[in-house]
Amino acid sequence: MKLAFYPGCSLEGMANDYSQSITAVFRNLDIELVEIEDWSCCGATAAHSLSELMAVTLPARNLAQAEKMGMDIVSPCANCYNRLRASQIMIQKRIFDVPWKITGKIEVHDMTRFLADPDMLERIMTRVRKPLEGLKVVCYYGCQMVRPPRITGYTDYENPQTLDRIVAAVGAKALDWSYKTTCCGASIGIGRRDIQESLTARLLDKARQANAEAVVTSCPLCQANLDILQRNETESTIPVFYFTELLRLAFEPGRASRKWFRMHITDPVPLLRIKELLR
């Protein structure tokens, strides 16, 4: 199986650990990811804040590149996924025309939903060599992956299950909580730190209240916010994993790279040691 991979800008920088764990996990799953040739930024929130034209045309270039390759796109970043889908829909409806040829025939997958497909889950389960037993996590989806449903195609947008299923497939316990899709504040912290901190702190509090030992997410920006802004000295810290890091831990016990965990601000190694998932 071959897929066009659209990494997005943060996977080259802040989320390099995510990027490396994705490569490792997809190798384990025998799925070939071909990076979209000479991809460019999707424009993220900035483009659609300042110019609708840019918001549609910037992602469209990547859609066109992938169509040239003739493969479906898979996107690991929630915001990229949202922007690519939104752009594709606008072009399909002929609301915008773009300087590239786009038929809109290829599909844009978000990575978690792609892997939460029943066939894929089975494939994941066959690869597990050390189930992550006893690890209690809450899955955090954020906004852009699930909302608005008319763009993302999620039907269970109030209580999405994709990450929960994936995490359960590798043996960890996904706890129920009510803040799966509550916004983490995205990039508002750069201009308004107070808003950012209040939103992030609430999520972390609720995760603790649910008795979670870790948060699992798939969005680079959510991970960064939750990981970096654990300021509260009185509370215990709570590691924030990318779901692919957990998959790799289950697939290749002992060989899961310490390098990724060293990139986390909130150190996850003590927890993994207690759970005997890492030596």
Partner: peptide, 25 residues
Amino acid sequence: REKQVALFHQAFLESLQYFGRVNEF
């Protein structure tokens, strides 16, 4: 009204113009 937020979006689009991708640093 929120200058800092507005300038962030602007800076984002500007740096996109130079590299085609955005480097956080």
